[in-house]
Simulated scan of single mutants.
Amino acid sequence: MVKQRVRGGARSVTAAGPTSWGGGRALAVVAVVVAGVVALHRVVPNRPGRIGSLLESFLPWAGLLVVVLLGLALWRRSAVALVAVLLPVGAWVHLFGGLLLPAEAAGGRELVVVQHNVSDENRDPAATARALSDVGADLVALEELVDPQLAVYEKALASDYPHHVVRGTVGLWSKYPLSGARLVDIKPPSIEEGWSRGVRAVVRSPYGDVAAYVAHLPSVRVGAGGLASQRRDESAALLGRAIADESVETVILLGDLNGAVEDRGLRPLTSRLNVAERGFALSFPAALPVARIDQVMARSAVVGHIRTLPATGSDHLPVVARVVLPGHR
C-alpha cells in the first residue's frame, strides 16, 4: 500500500485497482451501445455486406460480452457502469432468456422430430442412421443425400420408418403414412438446373394431418466483403411463399436453413412460423458449434424444445425437437 500526504492526513491507494464506486463512464457507454445493438438489431442496416444479417447470426454470443462488461464493472467498482450493464442484461434476457429454461414435461399430442444434414462426405452413413433411429423420433429429415449413401440410409431406417420420400438431396422418413409427396422448388434463378433441395409430404399422424417440409437452403460465406447470402435469402423467400400457399393448416419445417432464426434473411419463414421456445441447440460446425443453422419451425403448432444429439460422421450435429400439435399445450 502506498500512502500519499494530503491536507488533513494521509489517504491510501491500492495497487490492485480503484477503491471508489465512481467513474466507469466509458464502460457505461459501451454497455448502453451493446444494449442498443441487441435490442434494436433489426435497425442495423444490411448494406454493405449484409452486416445486419451477420450480426444477427451470432447475436446470442452478445451474452459473453455482457458477462465481460459485468466483470469489468465489478473490478472497476463503478456503480454507474453496473447500473448501465443492467441494460444489455435485460435486452439479452428478453431475446434469449426463455431458451435457457428446462424442457416442459412431455404431453400427448406431440411429434418428436429429428433434423440432420448428414453430409455428402459422411464415411459411415450406417452408423449415422443407427444413431438417428435410436432416438425413436416420429419423423426424421435428412439433407445431403447422395449416392451411394442414400441406399444405406434407406436400408438402415426401413424397419423403424416404413414410410419415406426423397426428392433430390433431401428426404423425410416417417413412422406414419405419407401422402401428397412433391418437390418444392426453392432454386434461386442463378443456380443451374438439377439443383433440388426441397420436398413436401402430408404426414397422417394420429393427431391429424401435418404438412411436413424438408429443405436445404444455399450456403452462405463470410469474407472480407461481409456475408454472402443472396442465394440463401432468395431460396428462403421461395420456401416462404410455398408454405404460405399450403392448404394443410398444421405445418412443420425441418431443414438446414444455413441461418440462425434471428437472421433477417430468414424472415420469409420466421414471420410465418413458430420457432423453438427452449434450447439453443448450436449445431454447426460439429467440432465447435457456434450457431444453430439446423432448424425446426411450425405453423399452428409449437416447437417446445430443441436440443442437439452427439456428433455423427457429419460436420453438423443432429437436432431433435418436440412439436406440440393443436389441442394440447
Rank of each mutant, 00 (worst) to 15 (best):
Q4D: 14
S12C: 07
T14M: 06
T19H: 11
T19F: 14
W21Y: 15
W21T: 09
G22T: 15
G23T: 08
V30R: 05
V32W: 01
G36E: 08
V38N: 02
V38F: 00
P48L: 02
G52R: 06
L54I: 13
L54Q: 10
E56A: 15
W61S: 09
W61H: 15
A62L: 01
V68W: 09
L70W: 12
V83S: 04
H94D: 08
L95P: 03
L95W: 15
F96K: 01
G98W: 04
L99Y: 15
L99I: 06
L101Y: 07
E104N: 12
A106M: 06
V113P: 00
V114S: 02
D120N: 13
D124W: 04
P125L: 11
P125E: 09
A127R: 14
T128E: 09
S133C: 07
D134Y: 11
D134M: 14
V135L: 05
A137P: 02
V140P: 00
E144A: 12
V146M: 11
P148V: 04
K155C: 02
L157T: 13
S159V: 10
D185K: 00
E193L: 08
G198C: 06
V199G: 02
V199M: 05
R200N: 04
R204L: 13
S205A: 13
Y207W: 15
Y207T: 07
Y207M: 11
G208N: 01
A212R: 00
V214F: 05
A215N: 10
V220Q: 11
V222A: 12
G223T: 12
R231S: 15
S235D: 01
A236G: 02
A237T: 06
G240E: 04
A242I: 00
D245S: 09
D245F: 00
E246W: 04
S247W: 00
T250V: 09
L257Q: 04
A260Q: 14
E262W: 10
E262H: 05
R264S: 11
P268A: 09
R272F: 01
L273I: 04
N274L: 02
E277R: 04
A281W: 13
A287K: 09
A287L: 07
L288P: 04
V296P: 03
H305Q: 05
P310L: 14
P310R: 06
A311N: 02
G313T: 05
S314G: 12
L317K: 03
L317F: 06
